[in-house]
Design a protein around this nucleic acid. Structure first.
Length: 598
RNA sequence: GCGGGCAUAGCUUAGUGGUAAAGUUCCAGCCUUCCAAGCUGGCCAUGCGGGUUCGAUUCCCGCUGCCCGCUCCA
């Protein structure tokens, strides 16, 4: 802190600098000038990611009986992205407003009436200048002065601080031209002129096969989830599972982001860890169990119950995922939750909560947990023409036990509920009925399309969260009494890339070196270790602190028995965060450390 | 995609129209009985491409990348 400059360096820069210096993260293709939005993980980053990936996989599937794994291809049939809606939302022709660069779908421009005003550019007395000509629409009935003010405001919005005060912006070379009726060449909100329509596809694509023509266009998956939906039936039929169960997958996904930013937080190639947990529709639960457990504050989420509806399952997974984060060091103090409001929600989602992490650049999403109904399976069923319904014998039996009158009453209730739900969303009663009746018919025979709860996490974001949380600076005094800064990465031991450093106290004593080599050979069978004999012992500790190694083992003269037989074959174990030391017998070392690395 | 800023060694910085300096890291050797010690030696840089110039790291243009603000984030 004695150096005022060190305060000025933003935290994020310090973290990225350390990540490069020590081999966590490198810019992709760096020697060729880099490529925007892509990152490589160096040796330590690769191990950190591997540990995170394994922790997730272990928690989500190996330790559970009701979740199975999947590893699907990155490139899939293009129709999948049509069915999922990605082609439509990602690949539209877009036009851009000249004033604000706001994009709008080319086919979504409302006709407007007004007079076109052209400008050669704009400038401000502080030296800011925009030399690009632009035009905008003076709307019918709009006062010219309020129009000019509006244009200045929009320009300022786009230009940012550099343009200075809104009032000081000068519009250059104003010229009126034609008056238009029902024109679609102006942005509906800003009335700024629109650029020509350009395809704006957020999916990365490639051409599959030798001919490489447009009909061979295929996409790199923009999310891993769709593969799970598409293979749902295969997994279900081959794995002897029953609803409720889940399928999880870890893999790369690709998005042609407009603006990759915040280091690895938003990149164009990234790794997702997703679970699709399939559950019965609430109506089926009610049929079998008489009623559906509804969530209320303080409800017991520890053990899933047969009568849980989607709400309980959704809450359950939020709870499970929160517990997972705690095991890798991301406790409640660094996490936050955002429950999407009905306005935020995608039309097919019933609920969605974002688990947020307090990154140095702001509180941002780490994971989204959505209750998606049966939207995805419905889409794939419709588009593929293949049934994705499951048969539930328990449900069929329960339905068979009902009298005809009871069945009718059940159907009536469902219809009433669906009508209420549909009309609340602005849809017609007829629509509700035509959907509800066949649904009930099938349900009473034991068939339905499962609903889904989707916890979807970003591995790269998680790694970045771990790194930013771990970064710690401490002030310390060196042997000369000089104050200096100690940088350490307080990475949770369970995910630290290197678990233990092994050091001979001095390197010019063969007895120490040989013994240290022995200890290293012993430990590296159990976990990732690092052997280091160069430089003073303090420096070696510091090096390991900076990469988050939780333990260091030093072979000293006590180990050799020179300080008495009772200390022979014991070593010093140093803990990273506290610097505390403990003597441990070499024979006990693996167990001692393994217990602390869990 | 728009606007602004930045680009010199692994890192942090200095400097210059005439062959680029330092600290630190790193490597090697010596030394060293627990927290970046010391000594000696060593490696390593002007993002890329044009232009102006006898000569460009320096001035100009373009590109790329990074950062900030907007936009985007299904």
């Amino acid at each position: 802190m004695s150096d005022p400059k060190s305060k000025e360096v933003p935290l994020m820069e310090k973290i990225t600098s350390l990540c490069k210096r020590r081999g966590f993260i490198f810019q992709s293709s760096e020697i060729y000038g880099g490529i925007g939005g892509f990152w490589d993980y160096g040796p330590l980053g690769a191990d950190l990611k591997r540990n995170l990936r394994e922790a997730w996989w272990r928690t989500m599937t190996r330790e559970r009986e009701d979740v199975l794994g999947l590893d699907a291809s990155i490139i899939m049939h293009p129709a999948i992205w049509k069915a999922s809606g990605h082609v439509d939302t990602f690949a539209d022709l877009m036009r851009e407003c000249m004033l604000t660069n706001k994009r709008v779908r080319a086919d979504h421009v409302e006709p407007q009436d007004g007079t076109v005003l052209h400008y050669e550019g704009a400038e401000a007395p502080n030296g800011w200048k925009m030399s690009r000509p632009f035009h905008a629409l003076l709307r019918k009935g709009e006062h010219i002065e309020s129009f000019r003010k509006r244009v200045r405001t929009l320009l300022r919005l786009n230009a940012g601080e550099a343009a200075g005060d809104v009032e000081s912006i000068v519009l250059l070379g104003e010229a009126k031209s034609e008056t238009l009726e029902a024109t679609v060449d102006f942005h509906p909100e800003t009335s700024g002129g629109l650029t020509d329509a350009k395809p704006f596809n957020l999916m990365l694509s490639t051409l599959v096969g030798p001919t490489a023509t447009e009909e061979n266009r295929a996409y790199l998956r923009p999310e891993t989830a769709q593969a799970i939906f598409v293979q749902f039936k295969n997994v279900f039929d081959s794995s002897r599972v029953k609803i409720p169960f889940g399928i999880c997958q870890i893999g790369k996904a690709f998005r042609n982001e407009v603006t990759p930013k915040n280091y690895t937080f938003r990149s164009r190639e990234f790794e997702q860890m997703e679970l699709e947990f399939f559950i019965a529709p609430d109506e089926a639960i009610r049929l079998v169990h008489g009623s559906v457990a509804v969530w209320s504050e303080g409800a017991d989420l520890s053990t899933p119950q047969p009568n849980w509806g989607w709400q309980m399952w959704h809450r359950y997974w939020v709870d499970q995922r929160t517990k997972f984060y705690a095991t890798i060091g991301l406790g409640p103090d660094v996490l936050d939750y955002y429950w999407q409001t009905s306005a935020d929600l995608a039309h097919y989602a019933r609920a969605c909560v974002d688990i947020l992490f307090k990154f140095p650049f702001g509180t941002e999403e780490l994971e989204g947990i959505a209750a998606r109904g049966n939207f995805d399976l419905t889409q794939h069923q419709v588009h593929s023409g293949k049934s994705l319904e499951v048969f539930d014998d328990e449900l069929r039996t329960a339905a068979a036990a009902l009298s005809d009158a009871e069945k009718e009453a059940f159907t009536d209730t469902v219809i009433k509920e669906w009508v209420a739900d549909y009309t609340a969303k602005g849809k017609s009663e007829v629509e509700a009925r035509t959907a509800a009746i066949p649904f009930c018919e099938k349900l009473l025979k034991g068939n339905y399309l499962p609903h889904v709860i989707e916890p979807s996490a970003g591995l790269d974001r998680l790694a970045l969260a771990v790194l930013s949380l771990a970064y710690t600076e401490e002030e310390k005094t060196d042997v000369n009494g000089k104050k200096e800064q100690r940088t350490l990465m307080k990475i949770h031991p369970s995910i630290a890339p290197i678990k233990c450093g092994v050091f001979p106290l001095l390197k010019n004593r063969p007895e120490l070196v040989n013994k240290a080599r022995e200890v290293y050979a012993l430990l590296k069978k159990h976990f990732n270790c690092f052997y280091d004999e160069s430089a003073a012992i303090g420096r070696r500790y510091a090096r390991q602190d900076e990469v988050g190694t939780p333990y260091g083992v030093t072979i000293d003269f006590e180990t050799l028995g020179e300080k008495g037989p009772e200390l022979a074959d014991t070593v010093t174990v140093r803990e990273r965060d506290s610097g505390a030391q403990e003597r441990v017998k070499i024979a006990d070392l693996p167990a001692y450390l393994l217990a602390r690395l869990a």
